[in-house]
């Protein structure tokens, strides 16, 4: 059952968003969750349309990111899950939270480490989705160099500690974990003031 915006103050305490930002984020949530079925929840199709702009039926990353948002494993997103996950993408979110989320994202099989075969699968998917054509030799070369940088324990996989060390040395690897415009949420959705549940 859709429950809407129940406790904006609690969500504001537990995320990087202020109460006003939570209420403005709810305006965005209503827009996304009514795109296909107006039920106050975001299904995978609405998620894909809003956050990835791709119409393909299946996408490795849409599925993986959706699963990470869907912490209650219900196959559908409520506002609380949406707000908590997007909080990690806020410019003010803790770097450690971004590192953790990105590790989970790339640990496709959820084994606690990123293995070479997963990296290759993600590279091949990315190249296919962006229409780039690289030979298998070049792809293998890119992956070899990446593991030379990341796999400091030389066991053929990247664990969380190695991932953390890699992204701290190469912060640009976390670029996709920050959405700068989330800072503008209240000015983009000013109508939240008409539905506000809290006093100034």
């Amino acid at each position: 059952q859709p429950r809407g915006l129940e406790d904006p103050e609690l969500l504001a305490r537990e995320t990087v968003f202020s109460v006003s930002e939570i209420e403005a984020l709810y305006e965005l949530f209503k827009r996304i969750s009514s795109a296909v079925i107006d039920d106050g929840l975001i299904n995978k199709e609405e998620f894909q349309l809003a956050l990835f702009k791709i119409n393909k039926k299946e996408s490795l990353f849409v599925d993986r990111v959706f699963d990470l948002f869907d912490t209650k494993h219900s196959g559908i997103l409520g506002f609380e899950e949406f707000a908590r996950a997007l909080s990690v993408f806020h410019p003010n979110a803790l770097v450690d939270d971004k590192i953790e989320f990105s590790f989970q994202l790339y640990d496709l099989k959820q084994q606690g480490f990123i293995e070479r075969q997963e990296v290759k699968q993600m590279v091949v998917t990315t190249l296919a989705e962006s229409g780039m054509n690289l030979s298998d030799d070049v792809i293998e070369n890119i992956i070899n160099k990446t593991f030379e940088q990341a796999d400091t324990k030389h066991d053929g996989k990247i664990d969380k500690e190695e991932w953390k060390n890699l992204v701290l040395r190469h912060p640009s690897l976390l670029k996709n974990m920050t959405l700068q415009y989330l800072k503008d949420i209240t000015t983009t959705f000013p109508s939240f003031v008409f539905h506000s549940q809290v006093d100034d």
Binding site: L51, F52, V119, M122, Q149, K175, Y181, L182
Partner: peptide, 30 residues
Amino acid sequence: QRNSGPPILINAFQLIGMSSCLDLSGFFEK
């Protein structure tokens, strides 16, 4: 003499980041 080609400058995760990027920018356009 063997030509090993240009050095690889891109990390696999930089590449993957292109596909795994969320994009809500359309909702924020003024």
